[in-house]
Structure formats: C-alpha cells, structure tokens
C-alpha cells in the first residue's frame, strides 16, 4: 500500500472528515483512504439531509460528498451547508457522467471535485490543496509529519 505523509490541521491535530455517500462500500473505501492520510472520520451520512445534520453536529474540516443520493441530492446539500457555513470545505465525489451536477455544485460553493473511481494519490493532492486555502497562513499550511500514519 502507498504511504502518505499525514495531512494535519494547522494545530497539528488530525483533519476531521464527514463522508457522505449512499453506498456503504463507497464510504468504507473513502474512509480507508482518509485513515491512510492520517485523518479522522467525524461522521458519515447516506443522504443529503443526514449530511446537513451531521455537518451541524460535527463541524468537520472536510466534507466528501457524493452527487446522487436518495432524499436530498448532493448539490442541494452543498447549497444548504454553504449557506449556513460559508467556510465549509466540500469536495464532490462523482463519476464523469455527472459533470453537469459537479458544475452546479461548484457554482453553489463546493471547493473541488474528484472523479470516481477515486485514486488515493489524486484525492490526497486535492485534499492538500483544499486544506491550504487559508490566505493568511504562510507557505504550506499543512504539516507533513510522517510518523502520524495510522
């Protein structure tokens, strides 16, 4: 298995993730990667409504959000979360066929997107980029402490 330097918050604590996908398998797959990156799963959700509730409860650093889900689609969830929490960092996870939806999600305030099937090295770079968005932080804001691997 590939090895990754841990992605950490500025306070050197593990990054906290909310994983939203209606497929349990897809969630487990993402969670595995998150753990490879030294992250911590703050919550999981199988639909948009739960995702909003979980966001409010856990206040994660990153949301990984699927596009197509029952009850409430990813786009609407993005819109609602960003409306309440402008600082939310949401990365859309979707297959190529849903480009229109990704486009819409980006317009609603999603920070990035990653194609399914998700490759760990691609997701890693994207997360690193999304986490470095604080303009006040000098240089690379994320510590690359190698020993923090789980």
């Amino acid at each position: 298995m590939q090895q990754f330097a841990a992605l950490l918050r500025k306070d050197s604590r593990p990054v906290r993730y909310l994983v939203v996908d209606d497929s349990v398998f897809a969630r487990k797959n993402l969670i595995k990667m998150i753990e490879m990156f030294g992250g911590e799963v703050a919550g999981e959700a199988g639909d948009g409504l739960t995702a909003i509730a979980e966001y409010n409860r856990t206040k994660p650093d990153i949301v990984l959000m699927d596009i197509t889900m029952p009850q409430m689609e990813g786009i609407e969830a993005v819109e609602r979360i960003v409306r309440q929490h402008a600082e939310a960092r949401i990365v859309m996870v979707s297959s190529v066929g849903y480009q229109e939806n990704i486009l819409a999600a980006l317009q609603k305030g999603a920070k990035h997107f990653v194609q399914k099937p998700v490759k760990p090295e691609v997701l890693y770079e994207i997360l690193r980029y999304v986490l470095s968005d604080d303009p006040t932080a000098a240089g690379a804001p994320v510590a690359l402490a190698g020993e923090h691997r789980s």
Binding site: V96, Q99, E100, I102, L103, L106, Q107, K111, H112, F113, Q115
Partner: peptide, 13 residues
C-alpha cells in the same frame, strides 16, 4: 482531466 467544464468552473472559482 475528463471533466473540462467542471475544471473550468473550478478555475473560475
């Protein structure tokens, strides 16, 4: 990248 339209939107953002 296979999703150019989305890529363009993200660049714009």
């Amino acid at each position: 990248s296979l999703m150019h339209a989305a890529a363009f939107q993200l660049i714009r953002n």
